[in-house]
Amino acid sequence: MNGNNKSIKTGLILFVLFLTLPQDANLCVLPAEQMRVEHMQLLNVWRDDVLRTGDRSLIEIDGKRYPKSLQNACMKCHTSKKEFCDQCHINTSVTLSCWDCHLSPIE
């Protein structure tokens, strides 16, 4: 009985901690609705900025700074290619060439 109480208490504490933990990076570079429609254009702009014009300036969101990069920025938060990319693209039968070269996170 005592042991049960203990585990319930620790569970409760963990639960409260989990709820109050600061969720890092709630904001993306654009609002979600816009990202859904425009992410491919944005990625092209980033590509041309970094590669062609040499503008590697960092993007600041919520005090955190990110490089203009699919591999080193997007996929650092959205860590699952299966859930973040494939789900929609398979559904809409869009074939990508991104992952021919860019490395997706290890899942």
Binding site: Q34, E38, M40, Q41, L42, N44, V45, R47, D48, R52
Partner: peptide, 15 residues
């Protein structure tokens, strides 16, 4: 104004 993305840049203009 909405997108914050310059029009035309997405079509990968190359200088």
């Amino acid at each position: 104004a909405e997108t914050g993305v310059e029009p035309g840049l997405g079509s990968s203009q190359v200088t």
